[in-house]
Design a protein around this nucleic acid. Structure first.
Length: 320
DNA sequence: AACGCCTTCAACCGCCAAACG
DNA sequence: CCGTTTGGCGGTTGAAGGCGT
């Protein structure tokens, strides 16, 4: 048996509060407190339900409420707590004096969530998004559809598909790097020296930090995959699962060229020793060895840095 | 100026758990 | 123990304002 919504009671006002109503509520609570929200509206001369009064007070009228933009520190705190607590807004609010759960929730939904998505980080798991790989079958289907439409032979498209696969791998790696950086910066255990170590490693690559990367350049790989379908962020798992598309895959520090057979669908081989954990792989090696694939296994074009990936307008444009 | 689309955020809704009689 | 009341929470909505065309 459910309880009817309190605001359905006869004639109770809903919607935005007027300054007069605010004044009545404030002055009543300042004089008498709010022992019972149920009876408060009547005593305060308000034509509102108790729930509405409580919400108005806790989210807007309470004197200690801090209004205005969230500071960088508050933003970091929210990100950090959300990664631990999830959508426990009231619990998060307890760590941010003067901020209400509603305000934090709104700030998350309108700013932080989008920010993380733009960075390629899943706002639920706080891990790099890998759901792009799950859409590869659809990309293949689209490519096939296009092939049918254009009535061109399959071989004319396979290289394009390879390129997409490699670009996807590059993006995955880039996301992992970003995630590492975010983890280090936001970690409560991060010390100046550990931060310095990380930045030094990056600097040693000579290439890794593009001076200015507009956030709009970072692709949003996919949208709204149910949490249950989110794979763990292991690159090798993804490549293994997506072997349909893995013409070229990282094996140790090398890119393996595809072994083609003569079937209409090329056989896409995954080496047994597929891939080392991404984060552990020295960035320098990655930069030196990542190459544009070639069906013949030759003529690889080394990529000098991941900044090239980031600033690859053509690539980023694909996902814009 | 007018229109449509997008973003923001205050407020509402529905559910849950604790308290109470 | 059971039904009801109450406060609290997270998800969702919709009005208002901003912005681009």
């Amino acid at each position: 048996m459910g309880r009817p919504p309190c605001c359905d009671e006869n004639g109770l006002k809903k919607g935005p509060w007027t300054p007069e109503e605010d004044e009545k509520l404030m002055s009543y609570i300042q004089k008498h407190g709010h022992a019972s929200w149920r009876v408060l509206p009547e005593l305060a001369g308000l034509n509102r339900c108790g729930k509405s009064c409580r919400l108005r007070w806790t989210n807007y009228l309470k004197p200690d409420i801090k209004r205005g933009n969230f500071s960088r520190e508050e933003e970091q705190t929210i990100l950090q707590l959300h990664s631990i607590l999830g959508n426990k807004w009231s619990a998060i609010a307890k760590h941010l004096p003067g901020r209400t759960d509603n305000e934090i929730k709104n700030f998350w939904n309108t700013h932080l969530r989008k920010k993380l998505i733009k960075m390629g980080i899943d706002p639920i798991t706080h891990r790099p998004r890998t759901d792009f790989f799950q859409s590869l079958p659809q990309l293949i289907a689209l490519a096939n559809l296009r092939q049918i439409i254009e009535r061109q032979p399959w071989d004319g498209h396979i290289e394009g598909l390879q390129t997409v696969a490699v670009q996807a791998a590059k993006l995955e790696y880039m996301q992992s790097l970003l995630h590492s950086a975010v983890s280090i910066v936001t970690s409560p255990t991060t010390t100046t020296s550990s931060l310095n170590t990380f930045t030094t490693e990056l600097e040693q690559t000579n290439h890794l930090c593009p001076p200015q990367v507009p956030s709009s350049s970072v692709p949003e790989l996919a949208v709204q995959v149910p949490h249950s379908q989110m794979p763990s962020t292991s690159f090798d798992q993804e490549i293994g699962k997506t072997n349909l598309f893995s013409n070229n895959i990282v094996n140790g520090n090398e890119w393996c060229s595809m072994e083609a057979d003569n079937s209409s669908q090329k056989s896409l081989l995954v080496p047994e020793n597929s891939i080392p954990p991404l984060i552990d792989m020295p960035v320098q090696n990655f930069c030196n060895t990542i190459s544009t694939p070639n069906c013949d296994g030759g003529n690889s074009i080394p990529l000098s840095s991941w900044s090239e990936i980031l600033l690859d307008e053509e690539l980023m444009g694909e996902f814009a």
